[in-house]
Amino acid sequence: MRIAMIILYLVLAPLLGGLLDGLDRRISARMQRRVGPPVLQPFYDVQKLFAKQRIVVTNSQTFLMITYLVLMVFTGCMFYSGADMLMCFFVLSTAGIFLYFAAVVTDSPYSYIGGQRELFQEMCCEPAVLLTGVGFYLLEDTFETAKIVQADRSAIVALPGFFAAFLFILTIKMRKSPFDESTSHHPHQELVKGVTTELGASNLALFQITEWYENILMLSVIALFIINKSPWSIPAAILVVLAAYFLEILIDNTSARMKSGKMLELSWAVTIAAAGVNLLILILVR
């Protein structure tokens, strides 16, 4: 069962991630009253990027990008094999560090600033991500995702604050406006493109694929709030995940980029207000 889940994640995550990305671009275009690219556009892009001549600014960059991808995939596999959720989150942060390294090994100041902002974003997300793990532990007495999905009731009933906090930092994790500090998905100049500025074609493709794996992993955490032992919870979880993704697209299209200081204040404030209060109640009720 565990092996099957891992293989399913390995194969399906990039496909679903790419498809969601394509839908994202399409829906964004519709929101801007444009027709938008075909839904499979992200796959065409990645295919093209791999076909181009390889240009690397520094040799170590390719190695760092591959490590970033491998660690991200590894995190997802751990999550889907039902392993310790806390461990997954720690490996996830480690993956982010490799993206930082890949950005700062180049001489480009733009890439360097992007790398620093990536760390900053990581810092904004971390409290909410870790608290989510703690919340699940207080509720189910376990960090293991395999046991959490076997619960009698959906976790969201007892953990609405944690859910809200996680939903909030999802925007930061997905690098969507107003929190697309480290790199923007929209066509832009060097400073805004940040970490991806100095990536050659094939390395950009690696970045893209890693992002698909990461998005699916993040959405899976959202799903974990919903899923319980009843099979009906699975379609419900899928609906909630799609709604969350739609919300991200809507926020992305209706908000301007925020200063990183504001991002820190806002994300920690929401984390403390929503997840913190929920945590206190949970401890008192126990």
Binding site: A29, I55, K193, L199
Partner: peptide, 23 residues
Amino acid sequence: CMTPVYDVERFGVVNTADPMQAD
């Protein structure tokens, strides 16, 4: 060409600012 009236993105065109990634 990028605006809603002409919308070249429907052909997959992206206006990137990065020569290393441009075609």
